[in-house]
Design a protein around this nucleic acid. Structure first.
Length: 441
RNA sequence: GCUGAGGUGGCUGAGUGGUUAAAGCGUAGGGUUGCUAACCCUAUGGGAGAAAUCCUUCGCAAGUUCGAAUCUUGUCCUCAGCGCCA
């Protein structure tokens, strides 16, 4: 959520940002309206409470002096009922104000393209052999700096959906009978490949000084409210029946809440984490999209980066996080492009978001595998994470999150990019020491 | 799961119905000093207000009371012991 000062003093900035997100700027006015109401009622309540405090003291003195205080006690009963009434009113206003406030997204970074569909995403850079990507690259500037050590396929690549069946390395049919659509069993070498990718990503990011974490896969309502966005509760999150627990949709949620309600000393920042979790998503609203295979599923594994830092450093960390993720895909020698997600496609927490999209030759498309966001003070304000600055001031920190590596999607990219003419799959060089084998099939 | 003990500011920790929540450490500002250390003074949870000032805050919630950190109930968490368990 945004700083109230921003609504009170610079509401135009907020309104502009909401317009660029294609959201209704009237929400901003509602926030201001209820804030005003709240403050008016609050003044009344505080006056009454002051009276209560004063008279209470008088009663105490009378009692000490062994005098009768009945008259004053009677008077207080009336004051108390007034307090109760106004207190209720004030709380209602505050609740309304904040429910509108939660609906307002983070202030967009100036570099974010205004647009409502992914076509408006801004091309940042690409890695990989350009002719592999040519078909899809026309709309984008080309960057030929990256080189792949393998030749692009000279045959028509088979989609991962068919490959997993052919090679007997996953089973979505059985899973759909037992758990439902968008579930899967990994089998044989794919199990080892999945584990290898987790360990690979963990190793590489931990090497850069990030603290490795294996997080809970569930959070209670209070924590989840701090970490997730409003819409997530309906569209994304699974609730455990009869328990105050939700399955997490990303380790971002457990890493963000790790320091909930904490105050850092300046010298203790930044805190950098690389966390593993399995993630659970309802994927409501994506009916019909990627229904086959393991690209869009209800349950997947991911290594996630998360940073708490001083406000002046979040820009720097944003670029570090995306570079860390890119390093992984470079080591795996998978072609990709980086795009800056446009305003209308961005979630409320982020002020700016870069996606890495890996080239999927069988689909002939770039598909999202990494998402890197600078949430500035928006997320930590809700989580109440602050820093004591030298100079004595206390300030909300900044938070950032980025995928390091989402294993199932990366598996799809490997299957499609590393398939050989004979139908086998070569294992990326960087992974062989983790898998113990060099090919599948 | 059972029993017992406990949850107070950035940290340690006193406070068991009557204003302002001791004290120490840490942090910031100032003073003193040739410099550093030590020492001294001031500030240091959240909110409303232009300010004076006021409200609020003792895990969370409900209750008793004119008045609750303090009493009652529920709940969450931590620790110890017992039980169960991969």
């Amino acid at each position: 959520m945004l700083d109230m000062q921003l609504f009170r003093e610079n509401s135009e900035i907020v309104r502009d940002s909401e317009k660029k997100r294609f959201k209704d700027p009237k929400t901003v006015d509602k926030v201001i309206e209820y804030d005003k109401k709240w403050r008016d009622v609050l003044k009344e309540v505080e006056k009454l409470k002051h009276k209560r405090n004063v008279v209470s003291r008088e009663i105490a003195e009378l009692k000490k002096a062994k005098k009768n205080a009945n008259k004053k006690i009677k008077e207080m009963k009336k004051v108390n009922s007034d307090i109760e009434k106004n207190d209720k009113k004030a709380n209602e206003c505050l609740k309304k104000r904040d429910s509108y406030r939660y609906k307002v997204g983070n202030i967009l970074h100036k570099d974010v393209n205004t647009g409502n569909t992914e076509v408006e995403n801004k091309f940042i850079r690409a890695y990989g052999k350009p002719d592999v990507m040519l078909k899809d690259m026309e709309a984008f500037r080309r960057d030929t700096r990256g080189k792949l050590s393998f030749e692009p396929a000279k045959f028509k690549p088979i989609s991962h959906v068919d490959l997993i069946e052919k090679l007997d390395i996953a089973d979505t049919l059985k899973a759909s009978k037992l758990s439902g659509a968008r579930f899967y069993y990994l089998k044989n070498e794919l199990v080892m490949l999945n584990l290898a990718l987790i360990r690979f990503a963990m190793d590489e990011v931990a090497k850069k000084g990030f603290t490795p974490m294996w997080t809970p896969f569930m959070l209670n309502k209070e924590a989840m409210t701090g970490a997730a966005e409003l819409g997530d509760f309906e569209e994304q999150l699974y609730k455990i029946q009869d328990e105050d627990l939700f399955l997490i949709a990303t380790a971002e949620q457990t890493l963000a809440t790790y320091h909930m309600n904490e105050i850092f000393q300046e010298k203790d920042l930044p805190k950098t984490y690389v966390g593993f979790s399995t993630n659970f998503r309802k994927e409501a609203g994506s009916h019909g999209k990627d229904t086959k295979g393991i690209f869009r599923v209800h349950q997947f594994d991911k290594v996630e980066q998360f940073v708490f830092c001083k406000p002046e450093n979040s820009e720097k960390w944003f670029h570090k996080l995306i570079c860390n993720a890119e390093d992984l895909y470079k080591k795996l020698e998978l072609p990709y492009r980086v795009v800056s997600v446009c305003s209308g496609e961005m979630n409320d927490n982020a002020s700016i978001k870069y996606d890495i999209e890996a080239w999927m030759p069988a689909q002939g498309k770039f598909r999202e595998v990494v998402s890197c966001s600078n949430c500035t003070d928006y997320q930590p304000r809700k989580l109440n994470v602050k820093v004591d600055r030298t100079g004595g001031k206390r300030e909300v920190v900044h938070t950032l999150n980025s995928t390091a590596l989402a294993t199932e999607r990366t598996i799809v990219a490997i299957l499609e990019n590393y398939q050989q003419k004979d139908g086998s799959i070569k294992i990326p060089k960087a992974l062989v020491k983790y898998t113990g084998f060099k090919k599948i099939g």
